[in-house]
């Protein structure tokens, strides 16, 4: 059976979501997006010039992909909601990554404001994917409010430091009844692979691909890392070697008592 991720009524094959910021040019970005075979692409509405007939970023998104507008620049729930509505009115679709950042130093998200925006936008019919600091209580509330998935950070945006929040992400994967997508901080394909081995539903990557010396090959490498990690997860390797099953049952002798 095909291993598909279902979010917002869509069946998604590629578990690598990509961002569109920081690329040196759109043509190169488009090639990287195509090579990665990604299906979900996030675009900051602040960068979209809907009036521009040339250099409109949306023209460089492969046709088969779903655009997930993000609310980059929002300082509170109200601004995030307004950005999402603006995106909807402009025809950019209903998928929205809520990003509310009140901390320009570390770019860490504001979970409470993000939760508020999630509730409002989910009620309005948006497919809402909130970007958050890993917090199980808030994640539960986000899902109760209608979040289609939750997107905890691996490490701060653009830091390329990898999965520093592993323990918390593991708990979220265990406990949250919605897809967990690690967003932000993944610097290497092996980081993405590790997320997938752990049981994440998908990962979202931007900086590591965009600022690489060869974004096209880096996008491909991330895609392969995600595929390898997912395959390994499906093979149930996540317990590690100490918990490996012995070839003969350790308590098999008990049967002899009969």
């Amino acid at each position: 059976m095909e291993d598909l991720l279902e979010i917002g009524g869509k069946k998604i094959k590629s578990r690598l979501f990509l961002g569109t910021g920081k690329f040196s040019d759109y043509t190169l970005m488009k090639k990287a997006l195509e090579v990665s075979e990604t299906e979900i692409i996030t675009v900051a509405l602040r960068r979209v010039d809907l009036e521009s007939k040339q250099d409109n970023i949306l023209d460089y998104i492969p046709k088969k992909c779903t655009v997930m507008v993000n609310t980059s620049g929002a300082r509170d729930a109200d601004e995030a909601v307004r950005i999402a509505r603006l995106a909807k009115m402009s025809g950019a679709g209903l998928w929205v990554k809520i990003e509310v950042i009140r901390d320009n130093k570390y770019l860490l998200p504001d979970n409470l404001e993000t939760l508020k925006a999630t509730e409002i936008l989910a009620k309005e019919g948006f497919v809402v994917l909130p970007y958050m600091s890993p917090d199980i209580s808030i994640a539960r509330k986000m899902v109760e409010c209608g979040a289609a998935a939750v997107m905890p950070l691996g490490s701060p945006i653009g830091s390329n430091r990898g999965l520093k929040t592993k323990e918390l992400i593991s708990i979220m994967i265990e406990e949250i009844k919605a897809p967990i997508i690690v967003d932000a901080g993944l610097g290497r394909p092996s980081d993405a692979c590790a997320c997938m081995e752990l049981g994440c539903a998908a990962v979202l990557v931007n900086t590591a691909v965009a600022i690489s010396k060869d974004p096209i090959n880096m996008a491909k490498a991330f895609s392969e890392g995600v595929i390898a990690g997912r395959r390994a997860y499906l093979c149930k390797i996540t317990q590690g070697f100490n918990a490996a099953s012995p070839s003969s049952p350790l308590t098999g002798f008990l049967r002899e008592e009969k």
Binding site: L45, R46, R47, D49
Partner: peptide, 11 residues
């Protein structure tokens, strides 16, 4: 470098 002409809008 990508020249960015728009990086914000009134919301």
């Amino acid at each position: 470098y990508q020249p960015v002409l728009k990086d914000w809008m009134r919301i």
